[in-house]
């Protein structure tokens, strides 16, 4: 996978995992929010989640999840897409807008600095905090020697 692609999948992922309020704040903080058209959605549907038997064997269908998708078109013609879990139309619209803006050289550097990088950091901190919370419940079981021998 080429580097630009990797970067786009990375920002799309972190935009999906972020809280809706955080995206709304970032949008409200824009000095000049771009004009845009909604091309598709936001609309909610289902994605069938797949897994593998034993995690490494053949695939099976585990169950569905709700997903909201949205596609937007900026005035300059750049398309932005979002696919996010849950029924979250506002979140999907904002994520699609940021996806479009991040492809636009006029906005991308600024948005990476003010939005993507802080979100990546927040995600990292969130995961570290969660691991930190459960760590004290790590146990060492020890077997007792029984008396019969």
């Amino acid at each position: 996978m080429s580097t630009p692609l990797t970067r786009r999948s990375q920002w799309m992922g972190v935009l999906a995992l972020a809280g809706t309020e955080r995206l709304q704040e970032a949008w409200d903080a824009l000095a000049a929010p771009p004009e845009y058209n909604l091309v598709r959605g936001p609309e909610t549907g289902l994605v069938m989640v797949r897994a593998r038997s034993g995690n490494g064997g053949r695939r099976f269908n585990l169950g569905e999840m709700t997903v909201t998708r949205c596609s937007v078109n900026l005035q300059g013609g750049i398309m932005g897409h979002a696919w996010i879990s849950g029924m979250r139309p506002d979140h999907a619209r904002l994520a699609a807008l940021f996806d479009a803006m991040l492809q636009d050289p006029q906005h991308s550097d600024e948005l990476r600095r003010t939005l993507v990088e802080p979100l990546l950091l927040a995600r990292k901190e969130h995961l570290a905090r969660r691991a930190h919370e459960v760590r004290p419940s790590r146990v060492d079981f020890f077997t007792l020697v029984r008396g019969e021998d």
């Binding site: 609309e43 289902l46 994605v47 897994a51 695939r59 709700t66 997903v67 969660r130 459960v134």
Partner: peptide, 23 residues
């Protein structure tokens, strides 16, 4: 309720080796 929603597709198989483990 799920019967009222369109199906968008199938996910990639989840990888539980990369789970953020809580237990």
């Amino acid at each position: 309720y799920r019967t009222t929603l369109p199906r968008f597709g199938y996910s990639h198989p989840v990888d539980t080796s990369r789970m953020h483990i809580r237990r």
